[in-house]
């Protein structure tokens, strides 16, 4: 029974982390930017989902669509405000600061407007109980849907291929006449939708809580570090690994030690294999 609960809870949280990892990757693909706002998208997904459905009593479908729209808009704002202005000198790494600033602003706004206490996320379907309750299976199904949809987008649409092209060689994509800037905006909107989706389906598990933003930024990045930047497959594997490790650590060492274990995994992975499992090779310096 212990093993079952570690497994179920681990896979469920891991699925949420993996989806945040996907959001990181989608932004990274067109801009080579790792954004601190990735976790904020998840936090916004939970908070706005709870606001629309729990507080304002909108129908679930309407609340869901509106939440994704909020995520998309925030993605757009991220690109406009904290990515585009600093992209010209990407080697100066100003994006680390500008996205951190925007992330903190959003987190703080949520704390002020939504409150600093975690608030419950409404039950959406009410199917299942205990280990089969929807808070556990919903993130997993959503994660599969998101990953499959992204895979279809990348492989099956011209815009998706354009993302891959820009990611592979931005200058060549530009020379082909691919509108790099428009594609980048699109990728940030898409990433916003994916991130908000993660927060929406993970809401019942994680609650609607402002501090989840930084938490997800951190735990969502670990799968990316494990799997390799830009690799969606890697993010899925990494998310599951992290979720299971956390739940196991929670059982054996107690909840306070969960971040310590996660951090240790993060540093160990980065030092042992800086490019992750499926990452790209390093570039020449001189």
């Amino acid at each position: 029974m212990i093993w079952a609960s570690i497994l179920v809870a681990g896979i469920a949280t891991g699925a949420v982390y993996a989806m945040i990892g996907l959001a990181y990757n989608v932004m990274y693909s067109t801009s080579k930017v790792m954004s601190f706002t990735a976790g904020m998208l998840g936090m916004l997904g939970s908070v706005f989902g709870a606001l629309f459905i729990g507080v304002l009593h909108w129908p679930v479908a309407a609340g869901f669509v509106a939440t994704l729209a909020v995520g998309g808009i925030f993605g757009w704002i991220t690109e406009r405000l904290s990515v585009r202005p600093v992209l010209r000198n990407i080697d100066k790494h100003l994006y680390v600061l500008s996205t951190l600033a925007l992330a903190l602003m959003v987190q703080q706004l949520a704390a002020i407007e939504w409150g600093t206490e975690p608030r419950p996320f409404p039950t959406l379907f009410g199917i299942g109980h205990d280990l089969t309750s929807e808070q556990y299976w919903l993130p997993v199904i959503a994660c599969i849907i998101a990953a499959a949809a992204l895979e279809w987008f990348y492989r099956g649409t011209l815009a998706g291929r354009a993302f891959l092209a820009i990611s592979e060689d931005a200058r060549a994509a530009l020379a082909l006449g691919i509108p790099e800037r428009r594609m980048r905006v699109l990728s940030y909107v898409l990433s916003g939708v994916v991130g908000a989706f993660a927060g929406f389906v993970g809401g019942e598990l994680l609650l609607a809580f402002f501090a989840n933003g930084m938490m997800l930024t951190f735990y969502g990045f670990i799968p990316v570090a494990i799997g390799g930047l830009g690799s969606n497959r890697g993010a899925l594997v990494g998310g599951l690994v992290l979720g299971l490790i956390q739940q196991a650590a929670n059982y054996w060492f107690g909840g306070d030690m969960v971040p310590v274990v996660a951090f240790a995994v993060f540093i160990a992975i980065l030092l042992a294999m800086p490019r992750g499992l499926f990452g790209a090779a390093a570039q020449r310096r001189v």
């Binding site: 891959l164 060689d169 060549a172 020379a175």
Partner: peptide, 12 residues
Amino acid sequence: HVLEGHHVFGPL
């Protein structure tokens, strides 16, 4: 403009 140095998109 066809760039120099065969800039193809390798994974595609």
